[in-house]
Design a protein around this nucleic acid. Structure first.
Lengths: 191, 191
DNA sequence: ATGAGCCTATTTACCAGTAGGTAAGTGACT
DNA sequence: AGTCACTTACCTACTGGTAAATAGGCTCAT
């Protein structure tokens, strides 16, 4: 069957990603993926021996895609205010088909996650905060953004606000709710 | 054996509450509670026939306790800035023994929750936002708090920021992280 | 005061369904 | 001949849930 394996692995990850984002890591099973993909459970174990392996790869891929998106922002936008708007827009897009940020979802389930997933998860948040911190510092220097205290703290606060806003908006199936709050947060930063 | 049933039900709720706050609704089972309480699973079903009943009561009790705490704040504190500080302090306390806000946790799992729990959950957030909105409006009138846009929006933003900040801080097992972000958010509001 | 009947809380003993996971085999391409 | 992708056929542990039995305390007519 040639090397459709790369393709299959990706499709497994696609389905698993959607399941985690909508139902959480403890809210889906291999059987759910098998059904959606029209294969047997055993076939999934060929690609990802244990659920923890699948979970780990899920975070790795998500972070990698996310960082690419941030690089595209850096490559196409100069104004720090616009960068923040683009950043928030990514979250807004995720929410549109009623998904939660993969890593925000996993953060809630942190207490039940296998250790490799925990570490990968922290790495995702660290990378996000580092990017935000730099944008915030650049914006402050250029006097286009304003905020109190250290940029690192502002970055953590912004990330927390977006993740939390997303989570609550999802309970109301109301992306507008998230949009309003994210725009307010950006406006208060000067964007 | 008298009516120790009220006592037993409360103890079941206490243990289940801790389990949901640390592991999530899909991350614990009746067997976990039975073990912690040294009774059989069947005994739990006597008090809460289905897991959904237990979940629903859990939210009801949590909200009721929370609203009582808010009433105590209203009864003892006058300055809106102090009210917000007390409000944030509640979240900080919850986080101390590595717990997530019960309802923030359930919001993440929203997609898998039975309908009665979903409705109860939204009610909790509505009540929180209503209280915050009033405090913010009072503070703005008294010129002790300042924020842009409608108070309702500021309330939603504040709630989202605290829930999200809590969730991420838990991934680092670092309450100080939450403290820093919540103090920053309050300071930016003038508190 | 006492025993019959009732209520409450709990246990024992189940059940069907699902969880994650494995071993051995099959068929196709290289 | 070997490897890759996959299936068939299992396994054990655990899930939420139920029916029936048991034990103690309460009430009330005799």
């Amino acid at each position: 069957m040639a090397t459709a394996t790369a393709g299959t692995s990706q499709r497994i990850l696609d389905i698993a990603e959607r399941l985690v984002q909508t139902r959480g890591y403890n809210g889906f099973s291999y059987a759910d993926i098998a059904e959606a993909l029209h294969v047997t459970k055993a076939s999934l174990h060929y690609h990802f021996p244990a659920k923890a392996d699948l979970g780990r790869r899920l975070i790795e891929r998500y972070e990698s895609n996310f960082l690419e998106a941030l690089e595209r922002i850096d490559a196409t936008v100069r104004d720090p205010r616009d960068k923040l708007r683009r950043y928030a827009a990514i979250y807004g897009e995720v929410l549109k088909d009623n998904r939660m940020c993969l890593c925000g979802m996993l953060a809630a389930e942190f207490g039940t996650l296998p250790k490799p997933m925990r570490e990968e998860l922290r790495h995702y948040f660290d990378a996000n905060e580092a990017w935000l911190q730099k944008v915030l510092e650049d914006g402050r220097k250029a006097k286009s953004l304003k905020f109190t205290g250290p940029a690192a703290e502002a970055a953590q606060t912004l990330l927390g606000a977006l993740e939390g806003g997303m989570m609550i908006a999802r309970s109301y199936a109301d992306p507008a709710r998230f949009k309003a709050m994210s725009e307010k947060v950006l406006k208060d930063l000067g964007a």
